[in-house]
Write a protein that binds this DNA or RNA. Structure first.
Lengths: 249, 249
DNA sequence: GCGTAGAAGTGGTCGGACCAATCGGGCGGC
DNA sequence: GCCGCCCGATTGGTCCGACCACTTCTACGC
């Protein structure tokens, strides 16, 4: 944890212990601190870059880099001509960055990602099975129909992603949605479907999804957990068989 | 996915791609693309900021902001005087940013975070129970002794974090370690211990950890899963009882 | 009263300058 | 000939001041 060194910066503590941190880093900590201390609440507007820079004795360039860093993290949002604002700080915003992981990772890391999903998805699916209402189930059924049916592999991949996302959303846990999102990648999903199609195993993948839906429809958490586990393991099985073969071109 | 706007759509106006994106964003995409395409591999050194800026027709300021963004994401690493390098792209690096979540989130989001941990930790602990070797168990035992014994609450909190981290590390899954790390916060942990001590429930927390250790020692995954679940739920129980009361110090 | 044009405010970009840390090569001492 | 120190070139870090692009608010005219 703690990208920033813990300096017990007690409020009012004046004995400046020779902060040798880079200016930009100090600016980042300063703003982060204002949020953590409640001085800045979600939706609040920050002072202008020029004012903030003056306040910290830093240049506007450094302050801009600090703001850019926090913008990247999803903590701040800059609106051209209007000002800089604190985001709602919802998990989804903060974890957007998270997506780089699934986007960039390769090889062994993909296996690790799948192992984490194997822990999360079964639990999430079981929870969803206990909570799903009729409208949500109808929506799921609609998405399921688009999986593995049409000729377009792209639509199947998109529907697949939507399917799992919709299930996780049923849990009502935005943090879970964000984490799960970060562990899923469109390009990886596409590779899985393409590989299965080539091996004549598309049907197997579709059946996985049907079983998951059925379990949710039956409000059967145990069945849901099992179906989700089976599905993730199927993907993992495929990945282990294809590691290293289709990595680089 | 979706940190980058899809330029694939744009139905009507097919002609000009019209890259209207902000300069800095274009620079970010450029570098990210070079990594995704394998032009830049982990450990590689990037051209100098000045060269990169010239290459893209951008100013050095904008290029620096782009580099700052990717540095924040854990993709790049800048070494003063030496150059900018691509990180090993290990999950731990990429998820460092992740820690802002537990660091900043409050109220309801904390509950959500705990629910995610309730999915991950039992599974991770069960896996660890099946894999732990003697040396790892001895190390765990050593950490366990520091939990809830001495007078220093700070040491207990630190040991608590180490304990769970060590267990997750036994799984050998770096991605899992990183995710779990991001969901844990020292300040939150401190609040939990402080609250329990005030209520005279420190012993209960310590017993939780002892049960987890015992299960690992017995190489009993089921018991480990149960013990971990119980522990997370205990924390969740406490949090629900204290939401809104003791936010800030 | 309403819409519009203009002014002020604010983030976005630029170019150049200088500081500070690093690295490499050359010079001198052993 | 080898080792070590020092100096200069390279490169990231910071600062400044200017201008552009977008938003917002205001005052003007209809």
């Amino acid at each position: 944890m703690a990208s920033t060194p813990d300096h017990a910066d007690a409020p009012g503590d004046g004995a400046a212990p020779a902060e040798r941190l880079p200016v930009t880093q100090r600016a980042i900590d300063h703003i982060k601190g204002m949020i953590a201390d409640g001085l800045l609440q979600p939706g609040d507007r920050l002072p202008t870059e020029r004012d903030l820079a003056a306040e910290l004795g830093a240049s506007r360039s450094s302050m801009r880099e600090a703001i850019r860093a926090l913008t990247t993290l999803g903590v701040l949002e800059a609106r051209h001509g209007a000002g800089v604002y604190v985001t709602p700080l919802r998990p989804g915003d903060l974890l957007e960055t998270f997506s780089v992981l699934a986007e960039i990772s390769q090889g062994e890391t993909l296996i690790e990602v799948l192992q984490v999903r194997r822990m999360l998805e079964p639990a999430a699916t079981a929870l969803a099975a206990a909570r799903a209402d009729d409208a949500q189930l109808r929506r799921l059924a609609g998405i399921l129909e688009r999986i593995g049916t049409g000729e377009s592999e792209g639509e199947t991949v998109a529907a697949d992603l939507s399917f799992h996302q919709a299930i996780v959303e049923i849990t009502g846990n935005a943090t879970l949605v964000a984490v799960n999102d970060g562990l899923s990648s469109r390009t990886f999903n596409a590779r899985v479907w393409h590989g299965h199609r080539e091996a004549g195993l598309s049907a197997r993948l579709r059946e996985d999804h049907e079983r998951i839906y059925q379990a949710l429809h039956d409000r059967d958490p145990d069945a849901a957990r099992a179906a989700a586990t089976t599905h993730v393991m199927e993907v993992e099985r495929w990945l282990r068989g294809h590691l290293g073969s289709s990595q680089r071109d």
